[in-house]
Write a protein that binds this DNA or RNA. Structure first.
Lengths: 343, 343
DNA sequence: AAATTCATCCAAAGCGGTTTGATTGCGGTA
DNA sequence: TACCGCAATCAAACCGCTTTGGATGAATTT
């Protein structure tokens, strides 16, 4: 059923039917109601492609997901972010189109997206410190919002981020307060902006108290359970092992815990762990009492917020870039305790 | 830059330029080359919407993701499935459009997808035993392939699945061979087809040896770490606790392990665990020696295969439905051992 | 030399909507 | 009565592409 069929069936012009359904005032309420009922009855829905060709709006948002070429890794955070954004999109009648791109030729991907004209805007995932995509998108004039930030970007742009630096600074302070002096940092890839900021926070907390950081305790890698396990294992078997771990994701924290417990050590007593918790739906941090002491910030909420901002920008292109900075909550769990005095 | 502009710039008709770029033979190689170069130079890319309006093909595939209304849960397997499918789509020039739908009104979602005409076909995720979407899609004539199966479906349809029944039957046999007689089943929601089949396998292995199953040992729920932990904890504190656990996902297995180790028990010695492993990119089952004994089947591979089949169906609608059944590999890890003789 | 064939190219008609710029009929005013 | 304004409706243009059904001229055949 298309507009033409529907309108002849009603004995009206396409114009009138279209206007009736789109709420234009030049149509009497009586006919509008008639049209509405007929559309309902025949399950008529305007063809997206035709409509977007006519209006110039596609009613679709693109998400470009970087896939690690090296490890074929898809960020596990992604599902929940999408879920948050998707809520907003479906409420506003937008589609979400995904493009998976190997992390080495993203630029071409964005160019293509723009010239094919299949979306009204994009969400940029996984920004690096030096993020070429931001000036690129500015240049080609595709509305966008970044999930995260790019430290070295010069011009203003819209982003939604968590205060990674502050979160990890506070987490480190907590561990320092508990008497820990050798705190390992199990971080993500530090060319990723969030990981860089987290290390800054970690270092700042040390420096603020006149403490030095030990490069041997700071690890950076793709955040898999296995990497965290391996790293923790080897750190713990060194002569002067860390007494605490500051970890970048729940998945990694599971690996850290495995390494700790495998040695017969008890988390929260022998070794302390603080992790960041993205509040993933399938990986809640325990029940009433969290297992892990954690910096907590919902990535689903970030998804919602990003989507909202992007749609606003699309509806009013003159708007100034908007930014949202979530502060992570620091929740105390069972994985932290005072540093043991070394024998 | 659009076709019209490009063609006037070249002093050719739109027809010729379009044909040149789309490889039609009615164009001399000389002009074709000229056109190609000009298109390249001006970074011309045909507008997707316009093209699809003209051809009737949208060059996009829909994925409808059920989101649990109760727990706002997004299946963690999803990211890797998408990654696999995405490989195929981008190779073939297809977009992927995602629709998140609360699991109570999926039918409306599919109807809308069809009538809005924004995709050429869909992948159905998370089929139930009685799956209303299958007859629905057949009726409305939208090509589809199901990731998984629907036991009670009558007409043939395309699907890509893992042999859940056989996998769990073998896993159970392994545990029975090791002398375990009280094997707990930590399963997904059993209205989901995969979970139902897994239970069948588990039961079949028992019955084939004349053993009864104990309903108290079979649990079914959304597969979160927390559910697995809670369930395992309470099972282990009963008077006649299970000596082995058969688990439906790695995420759950992590919860099972936590509960086991929290009690000071050792996995693979005091309690055995076999899990299913979807080979998620961020959650590999250990290094050289797997941590968990597991039934292993790559969901990314399933994504690839599903995409391939769907594209074939779209290219040739007369094709008969195609089905692919992956056999899970049974890999031995450190989490299984002979049942201890009860004191 | 006329008739065919063939390789190239083009004008115009869709695809299914939205939107511009009339047109119509009616009650109210001069 | 003639005119105006207004509400309600419509025909046709347009969005950017593909594709049908010619047109053109050179090469080949008769």
């Amino acid at each position: 059923m298309n507009l033409k069929e529907l309108s002849t069936k009603l004995g009206l012009s396409q114009t009138t039917v279209s206007r009736a359904l789109n709420g234009y005032p030049e149509v009497s309420e009586e006919t509008r109601e008639k049209v509405r009922r007929a559309a309902e009855e025949h399950n008529y829905r305007p063809n997206t492609r035709a409509r977007s060709l006519a209006t110039g709006r596609t009613m679709a948002i693109g998400h470009v997901i970087p896939v690690s070429t090296k490890h074929e890794m898809v960020n596990p955070v992604f599902g929940d972010f999408i879920a948050g954004a998707g809520e907003v999109y479906s409420r506003e009648g937008y589609d979400m189109v995904l493009t998976l791109v190997e992390d080495n030729n993203e630029e071409a991907a964005y160019r293509q997206i723009k010239s094919r004209g299949s979306v009204d805007g994009v969400v940029v995932h996984g920004p690096l410190m030096d993020e070429p995509r931001i000036p690129l998108l500015k240049k080609i004039g595709l509305p966008f919002v970044v999930h995260g930030r790019a430290t070295n970007a010069v011009d203003p742009y819209s982003w939604v981020d968590m205060n990674n630096r502050r979160a990890f600074e506070r987490a480190t302070e907590l561990l320092l307060d508990l008497g820990h002096r050798r705190i390992a940092l199990i971080n993500g890839l530090e060319r990723m902006d969030f990981a860089y900021r987290r290390r800054e926070g970690y270092e700042a907390a040390h420096h603020n108290r006149g403490l030095a950081t030990d490069p041997a305790l700071m690890c950076s890698h793709e955040m898999t359970e296995l990497f965290a396990y391996d790293t923790t294992s080897s750190l713990l078997s060194e002569p002067n092992p860390p007494t605490a771990f500051l970890v970048s994701s729940m998945i990694c924290a599971l690996g850290v815990r495995r390494a700790i417990e495998e040695r017969g050590l008890v988390m929260g007593k022998d070794v302390s762990v603080v992790t960041h918790d993205d509040v993933l739906s399938y990986l809640r941090n325990g029940g009433d009492v969290p297992i892990f002491t954690a910096t907590r910030s919902s990535v689903r909420e970030a998804g919602r917020k990003s989507a909202e901002i992007l749609l606003q920008m699309i509806n009013d292109p003159t708007r100034d870039p908007e930014t949202v900075l979530f502060e992570a909550e620091l929740v105390l769990g069972q994985s932290t305790g005072p540093a043991l005095v070394r024998a």
